[in-house]
């Protein structure tokens, strides 16, 4: 199990998540190895199916990095993303998968540290949880 390196797909909203990722790099903060960063204009663009497909097609966890609530450039994109996560959580519970595999993190452009810490914590959590048993083999 120690060699298990969880794959995380990190959706980053262009207003906060993506700049926070850049900030993390600029600060030379080290990221867990197996992270795919997906850049979207707003967390509101992240469809529920992307969250599910990520898990189905091989990810062990999914993180959505969105703006703080009430601080969305597009008014409610982050809230829509949060609501879609709730849908995904219901689905995961129904099929017996840990809903913690999909999580949303609200941050700001300068939250490089929070970005990396969230991913590290998620990576550790997923290591304990073990590989996603529902991914395509």
């Amino acid at each position: 199990m120690s060699s298990f390196d969880p794959k995380i797909i990190a959706f980053c909203c262009d207003q906060s998540g993506y700049p926070a990722a850049d900030m993390a790099g600029t600060l030379k903060l080290k990221l867990p190895r197996n992270i795919e960063i997906v850049r979207v204009p707003c967390a509101g663009r992240i469809e529920t199916i992307y969250l599910l497909k990520a898990l189905e097609k091989g990810a062990d966890g999914v993180l959505v990095f969105a703006c703080y609530e009430e601080n969305c450039q597009f008014l409610r994109g982050n809230l829509r993303a949060k609501a879609r996560l709730a849908y995904a959580h219901r689905m995961l519970e129904g099929i017996g998968l840990e809903k913690e595999r999909v999580e949303i993190c609200h941050l700001a452009t300068n939250s490089g540290v929070k970005f990396v810490e969230t991913l590290r914590r998620k990576s550790e959590q997923l290591k304990k949880m073990g590989p996603n048993p529902a991914k395509e083999s």
Partner: peptide, 19 residues
């Protein structure tokens, strides 16, 4: 171009042309 409508459309009738 935020894409909220794209993600919400129950008929998948909307595309975001640049993403």
């Amino acid at each position: 171009g935020c894409g909220i409508c794209v993600a919400e459309c129950p008929a998948k009738a909307i595309t975001l042309r640049h993403l």
